[in-house]
Amino acid sequence: MNAFRLAGDMTHLLSVVVLLLKIHTIKSCAGISLKTQELYALVFAARYLDLFIHFISLYNTVMKLVFLASSFSIVWYMRRHKIVRRTYDKDHDTFRHHFLVLPCLALALLINERFTFREVMWAFSIYLEAVAILPQLVLLQRTRNIDNLTGQYVFFLGAYRVLYILNWIYRYFTEPHFVHWISWVAGIVQTLLYADFFYYYIMSWKNNVKLELPA
């Protein structure tokens, strides 16, 4: 495992920690899109089907379990926890996220690395992850006061994919057979969706002003 991949995994983990900190400690999910969180739970469930079949490393297994458990528990908190769910900004979280699922599934059936159940589900999870942030970005645009933890959460989530791209470039040159067009193209699309957010996030940090996205 190279440094980019490890750094990518760590920022991904950090984003989850930041979000859990907000939900678990502050008991608030204000500014967080339940739609995006539901899509992530689906992404991990579809991608980690091989969890108990295909052992890669202890690190890999533990991380998969962490992402599965955290994504489902975040959805549970936002839907069921009696204090947290009251802070959910339902009126602004209106993205029709169900309409992302079917096209991603259709694309996975058409474009996959092998036409098997697990490979189609893997491709589906890659496509869905690329667009899963959309409801969250829409909600951020509609949120007047984006708190620091929410901004950091989205920033780390975006940074994770940037680092993964560097990891793929590194692996492409060091592992001759490492070619995964599906994850590369989807990963680049996913990263581009963050471009706008990154710009405003860095500007707000540089100028030391509160993060706000133009509507």
Binding site: R47, D50, N60, H180
Partner: peptide, 10 residues
């Protein structure tokens, strides 16, 4: 590299 199409990333 892992056997088949084993995806070793998260």
């Amino acid at each position: 590299e892992t056997s088949g199409l084993g995806h070793d990333e998260l």
